[in-house]
């Protein structure tokens, strides 16, 4: 399979990258691990005239815990996310999302920025990141801006990121005591699968054991990853237990718009939203109790 022809740029600094992207605008496409872009280009779904590699920009590869945030460079690989102690210990559901992505070979190339930038509705990293309320740092020649991940995805394959911009960093606020999160993906196989449904849940318990923050994120059941407002509403202000979680799970089923496609019927996906919501909430609760 041949790739379409393109010009290749490998900026060494963020500034250089900004210049190139400003110059070529929507004729350019950033590449990091390439695990989505190269596939799309081979399938002739995309053929940018300019491909701009961000992989040689050292400042995009870092991971720091700083001021209560876990800050992950856009070019940090998914495999390294699984290994990273700072991620596992602070935002474990994100480790779970990373471990669920693709195959070990893909994870060694794929990056967090790429998984967000390609905006696939079945992607593994958006649900946990949305559950933690992450923020994306976008950079361009005009400067940088922060955008809440909830506002980032527009439709399959498109995001808030302008053609002259690139994702530079993802910042996740370290959850407070009493918080916990869970992520589960359901596919056909146990490895390298495209998800049928994936769900992440986050809850935070206050001192009296009442849920004061709840976020439930549903994947594969809408054009973008969805928050589940009805489910979250049920959880808020309540003490967690199985019955409550069951109610939230049922509500989550009404929070989504699954379509029937070759991976499954809408009916099944909706039902699985319920099952996975319940299960991720249970994981979240276990973790929340431990973090208290």
């Amino acid at each position: 399979m041949l790739l379409p022809k393109f010009k290749f740029h490998e900026p060494k600094t963020e500034q250089e990258a900004c210049q190139i992207l400003t110059e070529y605008g929507d004729k350019a496409r950033p590449i990091a691990g390439g695990t989505d872009l190269v596939v799309n280009m081979k399938k002739k779904l995309m053929s940018p005239e300019h491909v701009v590699s961000l992989s040689r920009i050292a400042s995009l590869k870092g991971l720091q815990k700083e001021n209560g945030f876990v800050k992950i460079g856009a070019c940090f690989t998914v495999a390294d996310m699984i290994e990273a102690k700072d991620i596992r210990e602070n935002v474990n559901a994100l480790s779970a999302g990373a471990a669920a992505l693709g195959s070990p070979l893909v994870r060694n190339l794929a990056t967090i920025g790429g998984n967000l930038g390609s905006a696939r509705p079945a992607a593994d990293l958006p649900p946990p990141l949305m559950a933690y309320g992450a923020t994306l740092i976008l950079k361009s020649g005009k400067g940088k801006r922060n955008i809440a991940i909830d506002d980032f995805f527009k439709s399959p394959g498109t995001t808030e990121c302008r053609p002259d911009e690139f994702i530079a960093e993802i910042q996740v606020l370290t959850p407070p005591a009493g918080a916990g999160a869970g992520y589960i993906n359901l596919g056909a196989r146990k490895a390298q699968d495209c998800n049928i449904v994936n769900v992440a849940s986050f809850i935070c318990l206050n001192k009296s054991g009442v849920i004061d923050t709840a976020r439930v994120i549903l994947g594969c059941v809408g054009p973008v990853h969805l928050r589940a407002p009805a489910a979250e509403k049920i959880l808020m202000g309540e003490k967690p237990d199985k019955v409550l979680f069951r109610q939230a799970a049922d509500a989550a089923k009404t929070d989504c718009l699954p379509i029937t496609d070759f991976r499954g019927t809408g009916e099944y996906k909706r039902a699985m939203v319920g099952v996975l919501t319940q299960r991720t909430l249970e994981i979240a609760l276990d973790e929340a109790k431990k973090n208290n």
Binding site: P104, V106, N108
Partner: peptide
């Protein structure tokens, strides 16, 4: 690290 060389330019 093992990678898919078909995805690497």
């Amino acid at each position: 690290k093992p990678v898919n060389s078909c995805l690497v330019l």
